[in-house]
């Protein structure tokens, strides 16, 4: 209920008025879970932009996977992140915590959730895809039948770059790619995902720069 209201009153209006998202490949967007969305991470707006792509009736099923150390740091942010944004918190340091850190994410998938994952692990350079962490590979290996949908955002780093607090409105481009399947091997899967993301990125750059310069 709170999450639907948040989507209706904050996420959708911000995305519509302050941003304006031009989506390409919308037919690839999953409308039921379980599914995993993988996106580049340049700004806190990424989550808002991704949530805004979904219709209100399934917004309760969409959960961003987020760093526990960052979002559970104080009581207010923790409440907001868990109850309003609906994050699935995980530990960032896999070596210390072991593989069971994915348990909450796997449970969410088993409940039919659509998870949003930023495999760079943190907000990177604007309009770039940094090196992806292996966590996504571990997660998909646990549930190999679940489709993984790559999404590339172009322009959000311009609206609200890391380290800025002022949102400056611009139109944003989103490129959604075809769903990927587990390849039976983590390295193969990670390579395929990296390739899909870089294809979307070069598509974004050619489309946008063709139109702009």
């Amino acid at each position: 209920m709170l999450r639907t209201l948040f989507a209706l009153l904050i996420v959708k209006p911000v995305a519509l008025l302050m941003l304006g998202i031009n989506v390409r490949g919308k037919q690839h967007l999953p409308l039921s879970g379980p599914a995993i969305l993988v996106a580049n991470h340049n700004s806190h707006l990424d989550t808002v932009a991704l949530l805004s792509l979904f219709p209100l009736r399934i917004i309760n099923k969409v959960h961003p996977v987020a760093a526990a150390d960052y979002f559970l740091c104080n009581r207010f942010i923790k409440w907001f992140a868990l109850n309003i944004v609906g994050i699935v918190p995980i530990e960032r340091r896999i070596k210390e915590a072991g593989l069971h850190i994915f348990t909450p994410a796997i449970e969410a998938l088993d409940n039919g959730s659509i998870l949003i994952i930023f495999p760079e692990g943190t907000r990177g350079e604007p309009e770039m895809m940094g090196k992806m962490k292996n966590g996504i590979g571990h997660l998909v290996s646990e549930r190999p039948d679940i489709p993984v949908i790559p999404v590339f955002f172009y322009g959000l780093g311009k609206c609200l770059p890391k380290g800025e607090v002022l949102l400056v409105p611009f139109f944003v481009d989103a490129f959604i790619g075809e769903p990927l399947k587990w390849e039976g091997n983590r390295q193969l899967f990670m390579d395929k995902l990296a390739k899909a993301m870089s294809e979307l990125q070069s598509k974004a750059i050619t489309v946008v720069s063709d139109e702009q310069f």
Binding site: K158, P161, V168
Partner: peptide, 18 residues
Amino acid sequence: KEYLSIVPTRRADHRVLF
């Protein structure tokens, strides 16, 4: 917003645009 989205802007000007 449409104008600013199609013209080139400098990243340094984030706050100026605000």
